[in-house]
Each structure stands twice: as structure tokens, then as C-alpha cells.
Design a protein around this nucleic acid. Structure first.
Lengths: 247, 247
DNA sequence: CCAATAGTGTCTCTTAGACAATATTTT
DNA sequence: AAAATATTGTCTAAGAGACACTATTGG
């Protein structure tokens, strides 16, 4: 496939375009055992041999970006996206982010329910869910510390103004489970009573299934599915957020 | 520069990586004459010869992504970023988005004050500010319609929860100017009294300069600079947003 | 004085947050 | 009944929106 000579206006760019490698990397988050966890793989080759890294791989020359992300997600977790949520996070392309050459990576953020499928990848490298609390800066390969931090921050922010917390839950869930997601991801406590009112009172946040749980302690809880609203109005407020509340 | 053979775990990727071209494209927005305008260049070559396109160009093989975006912005507008705001918007890489080959573009969103510098680029192609209201879908080259739409939506959303509207204003501005930005970008009317109270009452949104305008009609207005807050708490609310307000 | 714009005060309504009270289950 | 969890109700305070009113300029 012959490629590009000149793109935009002038002729400065008549020379052949510089060749890049393009990869996708995934920040796959889940909530298990009251911990926010990320899916990491242990690298089997240099560079960063033996270090943890985000799962990812090359984009095929005829492959769309979302398709590459979905494929990698399926390869690493054994499941297709539909259960959770997948969105583009950002692109990282520092000239020396990969010592082997010029690699630009498009990072994606995936939020998944804890489906007990820790690994199942086709890749030889071992993979596992790591609690974020156990990771220290500088521990990940390449610039993956930064990518992960950006992904976590994005996830935290999105819980505020989207119904995406439900992406961490199974298809049917209780208000308490949803609250647990918020509490874990935000690292805060939320009042169960006010949370319940807020969730059930925000149009399109959740939709009642009509059934209830059974066999737990206490009164059975109603089951809900994710609602149709793409955005929450008004948003869920993170306690204490940036502090200021107006003078 | 020899490049990558195998990246992550397996050996499926031992073959040489697929070669991509990487570009940056810019969605440069400004507010002039009560219109939200975007900087576009007219293409002088095929494909899409004669069509409007977002300014952009190739990333140098040793060039960082933000540096490439900043460079293109300077080339197209003749000014460095400091005045306004520049952030990564997203990456677009459909295999056939460019008929000449596999080109992945990292799009950036720039918000600039109306600095009367319509063009000044070194490129031969003509460039100009086009009001968004004059653009119809399908009018831009490549997938730039989509990129532009994403950029505009991002800008609209960011005015809600960041002090970024000030990026559209000169270094010192009045509350009325800031309100005009909101009204233009959102296409709504805002109550001047409540807006004033909201802006001056939100910590870190704007910082008073201490001087006032002179020589206009009516009472002189206090001048402000952009405040230090990265986020607005509470956010500016867009009237009528998604409709729902809670039952 | 009038027109015009800037800025403040007041009132009402909605919503967040604290927390009492009630409902429904298991043990 | 006691413990545990779910769900509803009540109260208070902060903020949004409507809008009267005051302040400061140019004609």
C-alpha cells in the first residue's frame, strides 16, 4: 500500500511520511472485594521484562481503532464489551516512551463488572487484577503509570455526571451495590438513605426490574438495570470534592 | 531507526509492525461577532481538493504530540498557545479515513480569543475563520465533520464545569464579555444579574484586576483575569440542558 | 433628565445532606 | 424479639432563577 506524499497545503511535506507504530493499550478497571482493581499483564520480554504493564498490542493495518481495543479486551479478558463500558481515553506518543522506536499508543478505558474471569487470555504472559492501592508510582512499564492515573481519574469523574457506575455492576443490581461502587471508586462513604433517594429520583439513572433479591440478611432489595440516560442531571456530587462550596 | 519486533506477550506480533502515518489536526475555536467560529483551511490538493479542512499536518519522527499540535497552531495562527487553551480531543484512525493510506490523526481542541489574526500561516493554502452556523454536514474533508462536532461538544461541555470560557477572552475582560462567550457557545441567553453573581461568587473562577473599563455606554465594568480554579464548584448550569430536573 | 449598562438585594423553589422513622427480611 | 438491611419522610441550609432596585457612566 503506497502511502501519502503530501497532505495539507504546502510542499514541505512531500517527503515520505515518517513511519510510526500504533498500538492500543487498555486501562481495564473493575471493583472486587471493595477494591478498585486494574487488569495488568506481566511482561515476558525486554524492555521492562518482568514489570507489570497495561494489556495492549498493535493495531492491524486494516483495523479500526475501536475494533483493535475491543479485540484486545476480548483477548485479555475473554469477554466482549457489551457487559461493561469502553471509551477512548487518550493518546500517548512521546518520542522515547518506547525504547524500541516510535510507538504511538491510543489508550482506552474499560469498566467491567467483577465477572470472576481474572484471566483467560491467549497470550502467554500472565495477567491479573491488581488493587490500585497496591501499586506504587514507577511500577508500570513504559508510561503506563501516567495512562493508568489518567484512566482512574477519568473513571472517578465520570461517575459524577454519568450513570456509568452501573458498568461495574452485573446486569441487575441493587442500590446498595451501586453505592458500593461509588464508595470504592471515590474512596468515600455515602449516606445510604440519601443515595437511594438520589439514584431512584434521577430520571434515567436506573430502571426497576420489578423483582427483589432474596436470601441475604435484612430486607430484600429491589433490583435495577442501567437506565437510558447518557448523562445525570443533576450529577452525583462527590463529597468534599475540591473543597469550596461558595465563599 | 530499527523498530519493534515484538511488544507484549506472545509471538504473534513478531512480524514487523504495520506502518502508520500520524498527523495532528486542530479544532481551533474562537468567538467573534457573537458567532462561534472555527479555523479552516481550503485544501489545494487532492483528495478533497477545494474543500475546507481542519488545519493539521504530520508529526515529526522525533516530535512529541503536544509539540506537534503547538507547532501547527503557531503555523496556522501565527501565535503561541499561551493566550488560550489547548487540549487533546481524541484520536481518529478509521482505516479508510484518508484515501491515500493509513493515517491516524490525533485531534486537538484550541480555544482562542478573537485576536483579529484570521490567518498568517506559512502554508500556501488559504485559511479563514468560518462561523459554525454556516457549515453544513458533509462539508469538510476526511472525517473532519465528526472531529469538529466532537470538538464543539467538548467545548460546550467544558464551559459548564471549568473556567475555560475565559480562554475565549482577552487577558482582561468584563463579566459581560464572559457572559457573551457563554451565550454564543451555548446559543442561549443568560440573566446578566444572576450570571454576575455566579461568576464573582464562585471561588477561583475570575480574579479582579482592580481597574474598570472606560468610554463605553453605561456604567464602567470591572476588569477580571482568569482565576486559578481548574474546575468550577458548583458548575455553571446550561439552561434546559437535557431537560430533566428531577421528576 | 434619559438611555444604557453594571452591579446588589430579595424572594421562591429545588435539591443536598443530616437523620428519624418505618418496612421486611434472617437468626 | 433482635439484628440487619431497605426504603421513606422530615427538616435545614445552600444555590438557582426571577426580577426589583441601586449605581455610574455618556448624551
Amino acid at each position: 500500500m503506497a502511502l501519502v506524499l503530501c497532505r495539507q497545503g504546502g510542499d514541505k511535506e512531500m517527503a515520505e511520511y515518517p513511519p510510526f507504530a500504533v498500538t492500543v493499550d487498555l486501562v481495564v478497571l473493575t471493583v472486587r472485594a471493595d477494591q478498585l482493581c486494574v487488569l495488568l499483564v506481566r511482561r515476558g520480554i525486554e524492555p521492562y521484562r518482568g514489570a507489570w504493564a497495561l494489556p495492549g498490542g498493535f493495531v492491524g493495518i486494516d483495523e479500526d481503532l475501536p475494533a483493535a481495543a475491543t479485540r484486545e479486551l476480548a483477548e485479555e479478558t475473554g469477554l466482549a464489551e457489551p457487559a461493561g463500558h469502553l471509551e477512548q481515553l487518550g493518546t500517548y506518543g512521546h518520542p522515547r516512551r518506547d525504547p524500541r522506536g516510535r510507538v504511538v499508543t491510543v489508550a482506552w478505558l474499560a469498566l467491567l463488572p467483577d465477572q470472576a474471569n481474572p484471566v483467560a487470555g491467549t497470550d502467554a504472559a500472565s495477567a491479573d487484577w491488581l488493587p490500585l492501592s497496591q501499586l506504587s508510582p514507577g511500577q508500570l512499564a513504559f508510561d503506563h503509570d501516567r495512562v493508568l492515573a489518567d484512566g482512574v481519574e477519568r473513571a472517578r469523574a465520570k461517575l459524577e455526571y454519568t450513570p456509568l457506575a452501573a458498568a461495574f455492576c452485573p446486569p441487575e443490581f441493587t442500590v446498595a451495590q451501586l453505592r458500593g461502587v461509588y464508595e470504592t471508586v471515590w474512596g468515600t462513604r455515602l449516606d445510604p438513605r440519601n443515595f437511594h433517594r438520589k439514584v431512584t429520583g434521577t430520571p434515567g439513572f436506573v430502571a426497576p426490574v420489578g423483582r427483589a433479591t432474596e436470601g441475604d440478611r435484612g430486607r430484600p432489595a429491589q433490583l435495577f438495570r442501567r437506565g437510558p440516560a447518557p448523562l445525570l442531571h443533576p450529577p452525583m456530587l462527590r463529597p468534599d470534592q475540591t473543597g469550596q462550596t461558595g465563599s
